[in-house]
Design a protein around this nucleic acid. Sequence first.
DNA 1: AAGCAATGCACAAACGTTTGTGCAGAATAT
DNA 2: ATATTCTGCACAAACGTTTGTGCATTGCTT
Lengths: 345, 345
Amino acid sequence: MTLTSHQPVTLHQVAEAAGVSVSTASRALNGRAKTYRISERAVENVQREAQRLGFRPSLLARSLQSQRSGLMGVVVPDVSNPFFAAIAREVTLQAETQGMSVLLADSRETTSVETKLVDELRARRVEALVVCPVGTESQHLMDADDAGIPLVVIDRCFPETSMTSVLSDNVGGARRGLQQLLNHGHTEIGCLQGLPGTLPNQQRLTTIRQTMEEAGLTFADSLLAGDNFTEQSGYESTLQLLTSHPEISALFAFSTPNAFGALRAAEELGRSVPDDLSVVTFDDSPFADFMRVPLSTVSQDVERLGRTAAEVILKQLRTGKKPRKRTHTIPVKLIPRHSIAKVQS
Amino acid sequence: MTLTSHQPVTLHQVAEAAGVSVSTASRALNGRAKTYRISERAVENVQREAQRLGFRPSLLARSLQSQRSGLMGVVVPDVSNPFFAAIAREVTLQAETQGMSVLLADSRETTSVETKLVDELRARRVEALVVCPVGTESQHLMDADDAGIPLVVIDRCFPETSMTSVLSDNVGGARRGLQQLLNHGHTEIGCLQGLPGTLPNQQRLTTIRQTMEEAGLTFADSLLAGDNFTEQSGYESTLQLLTSHPEISALFAFSTPNAFGALRAAEELGRSVPDDLSVVTFDDSPFADFMRVPLSTVSQDVERLGRTAAEVILKQLRTGKKPRKRTHTIPVKLIPRHSIAKVQS
DNA sequence: AAGCAATGCACAAACGTTTGTGCAGAATAT
DNA sequence: ATATTCTGCACAAACGTTTGTGCATTGCTT
């Protein structure tokens, strides 16, 4: 015997059971009883029957009629990455406080998938979008923006457009991270970069160049390696840098996985951290304090990134106007641990 | 000048622009042209206009009409917990392959919120639900199950009901983890449990008792502590256990945060791991290999938990019948690292 | 030239809500 | 007793799709 999978109860059925019309039932349940003069008796009947039948208004139908889906789209490259998971969580929590629901999409670090997903979300009539773009492609985002969909991008910025951005203070972070190395006497510093071409990456690089120059040093391009924020990129770049430039005494990794890759490579090359190689990294891991080599870190406030994005977008939804502020910069925190040592002169 | 936030283009507008009726436009776009005899010319017109106007069919309207929302609900206690993030990801990826979207909800480790969220998702007419329940409450889940909504719960099991469960092999895991300690000569073993009352916790406990007895030992209730899978619970329980039972030489933590708490407490008490205290833990962290004390672990295959849940539920959706198999058990893997030492006799 | 099939489309109902309006009957006023 | 207001509700349209059916027109057959 297969259980008949019942259809959900409709307002029609409730109305019938209560002996009133659908419109009356609707108003009875939505508290419009006074303004529309529904009798007490009718209201009670309707409520009782709704209760008894387990009526749950279809938000699909409601959305269609009200032109408000109550949905928010969130697109991230990889939900299982703690960075994006934290963002997804904050946005979700904020959305829930407003009775909105979150449609979560995972772009698998693929721009074409990201484009497809944004399209899908728009088809579902999300009222707002929070996107952590994979790369530098922005057409699909501009399209959504042009269509008037409130849109916030995190950790990216497309200056020529009118989108709102939420970013960490990459300039300040890069400066302080590098300064930390300089303070310990390091002058030969390699960089493991993330995605070239993205604004955060550029900001970090130019800040590093500038800070070096201010210190009377120069940053040679050959000391820059990497093309992604993965462990693999960090590993390979470190191997390459340390073999071609053995004089390097410190590495600035632009992501925690990069740093992990660096640790692995350093170990293979017989250079121990921090004694034979100092490392400072952007990003932070909740487990950093339990690390074999506790990484000194420029820590991004991921929760605040997500929360700010959600707040900005919810405010835009409430007020109906685009926020005047295009870019929100979230402070970072320098967390010195034990992956930096004084340079041995 | 505020940009007018345009309404999305409707099929009506496309039809009008193409000079045909709405129904014709619909069929032209949905490939029903041959069976419904729409002229080539009309099809081309419609497609061209749809393209030109940027038409995106409203999935809301489509869902309402087709009685298929294409939505899948996922409820987890904390998205930013790597365990749940991985599950959310796998389900999302699977859903995306089927053109379904995922509504993500975060219950903030609160049963009442979980209930509210399940209700909300049902109102949105999700076609299926994947839930990682916070606690032992199951009424809201039974309701959904009774309503015929395909439902899979992960890491929980409610034997009296007809829901499908996906669980790690807690029995095998507990046995192998404990055996590992026994093999190293430990006999005084404390347990840091997770949520009492949940099936996984019970399975682990009874397996431990049984395995101890098989080894000719007994497991005293006073060696059991903890009431949650948090770092805090692990910390406090360890302090309590090690002070009241200093003879304890090994701890079995039921979660990684528990183990972290244990490490912190052990350090405070001046007992170093693994020399003065062995630790084995359930669960695994992607960073385990970089830990100061690389934790020996009974590793759950989180991806597979999530993927299995998604597959089971998608299959149920395709075939329309409840799966005969009520419980899916996912194997675990023992990963020996360096948190277990031979007992010093 | 009449009959008939095939072609190409429009009309309308339906999905489940919300909401503007109209219309009885009762109550009150004159 | 008649006019007016108030009360309590039902009807119908709308949101944007899909889909069953009906109806011209065209073309072919004989």
